[in-house]
Structure formats: structure tokens, C-alpha cells
Amino acid sequence: MQYQEITGFVESSHVSTDLSLSLASSENKSNERNRKGRKKKSMKMENDEWKCSTSLVLCENPWKIRKVLTTSDTGGLSRLLLREYVGENFMLPVLDAHAHRKVISGTGSSVSVWDVDTMSMHNLILKRWPSLNSFVLVGKWNRDFVLRRALNTGDEIGLLWDSFKHCFLFSVLKRNH
């Protein structure tokens, strides 16, 4: 744009064409330098585009079922009370048809629970409690989890379904100190 303005000035003042040629020559050199600069810059950008990160980032929390334990969960009743929404959306859909019917009927169905923190397998009974509009994990909940893991009211636990092992995974996510 600067060259055009200068060229306009040159033509209007009737200065010799040598000056015009000199300006045109310097513009060509300038364009050539810019092209080389852009080429180097674009090569650098291409190299940067292929760099990749080796850090692992989890996009979402894998623990689909999270619960802060209440007094009734850690007391002598030996049951983990789960909301209806949790049972219907995260537990029932992973069970086979026979187990699903047993849970809904209130009889209950045995489910395996792998404690990922201690690498130990446990069996609990999943039941639906229609009177409370909830689900419960009963059986040896108190012995295998509350006492063995020293769980207290206010601790946060997590459960999720492992489709490869066909069991629920359990972990203590946060201790209430």
C-alpha cells in the first residue's frame, strides 16, 4: 500500500522514471523477504502442529455412583441405601434379565463388588425397597466394607460398573477427617 501511494506521488510530480524503477526494485526485494519469512513461519507452525502432549486428562469423573455415607449406612443395619435414580439408571441396566427381575421383586440378586483400593472381591445383595423408593446393598456390607475399611459418616464412596469383570467397582473417594 505504501508503494502505491509513493507511485502516485511519483507520477504526479513528474520525477524521473529511475526513481520509480528503484522503488519497484526495492518492493520486489521486500516481497521476496516477506515470502521467505512467511515460509519459515509456516514451516515452524507445521512442526508445532505435530507436537503432542503425553499428559493424561480425564474428561469426566468415572465414578457414576457417588455417595457421602450417612449414619444409617455406617451403623449396625448393614446396608448401603441408594437413591431410586441411582438404582434405575446405573445399576439395573447392567444386570441380566433374571437378576433384574429379582431386584425389582424385592427378593434381591447377588452382585459382585471389587474393592479397587484393597484389590479384594466381595458379594452383596442388591434389592429394591419400594417403601422408601430406593435401592439397598445388603448382606455383608457392614463387615466387608464399613468395618474392614473403617468407613465413617461423611466419607465419600464411589461405585461403577466394570463391563469386563461383570462387577461393580468400589473405592473410598474422600475421607471425612
Results as ranks from 00 to 15, higher is better:
L132G: 05
D117F: 00
R101Q: 15
V113N: 04
N133M: 05
L21E: 10
W129A: 07
G75C: 11
L137F: 11
S20I: 04
V103A: 03
R101K: 15
V113I: 14
D162I: 02
S30T: 09
D144C: 13
T54V: 10
S131D: 08
G8Y: 01
T70W: 04
G76T: 05
H14Y: 01
A150V: 07
S72T: 15
S78E: 07
E32R: 15
V146I: 10
S26Q: 11
R38T: 02
D115W: 02
V138F: 00
D115K: 02
T54Q: 09
V111E: 01
V103E: 03
K51P: 00
F135P: 02
K40S: 10
H98A: 12
T7A: 14
E46T: 07
R79C: 09
P62N: 05
K140C: 06
H98N: 13
V10S: 00
N31M: 12
V57N: 10
E5V: 03
L81Y: 05
H122F: 06
R101M: 11
G37S: 13
L56K: 11
R175D: 02
T17S: 13
E156R: 12
H14F: 06
T54Y: 12
L92E: 01
E32N: 14
D96N: 15
S26H: 12
H166M: 11
V10T: 04
P130Q: 03
D18L: 07
S134A: 15
E88N: 12
S110T: 15
K39I: 08
S120I: 06
D73V: 03
V68K: 15
S12G: 00
H166Y: 09
V116Y: 00
L137P: 06
V15F: 03
R33D: 09
L160H: 02
W50M: 05
R33E: 12
H100K: 13
V146H: 06
W129S: 10
N89Y: 01
C52A: 04
N28H: 10
D144L: 09
K51W: 00
C52Q: 08
G75I: 02
N28P: 00
M119R: 13
V103F: 04
R101E: 15
I157C: 03
S25Q: 08
E88M: 05
L81S: 08
T118K: 13
D48Q: 14
L169N: 14
S30D: 08
E46N: 11
R33I: 14
R35S: 12
T118A: 12
G154V: 07
W63M: 05
T17V: 07
S20N: 04
M119D: 15
F164W: 02
E60I: 07
I125D: 01
L160I: 03
L19K: 04
K67V: 02
R128H: 12
V57S: 11
S13A: 05
I6D: 13
L151Q: 04
S120L: 03
G108I: 09
S16N: 12
F9S: 09
K102D: 11
L80T: 01
R149S: 02
S30P: 00
L23E: 05
W141P: 03
K40D: 07
K165W: 01
D48M: 14
S12Q: 14
S131V: 08
S26R: 14
V86A: 09
N47L: 08
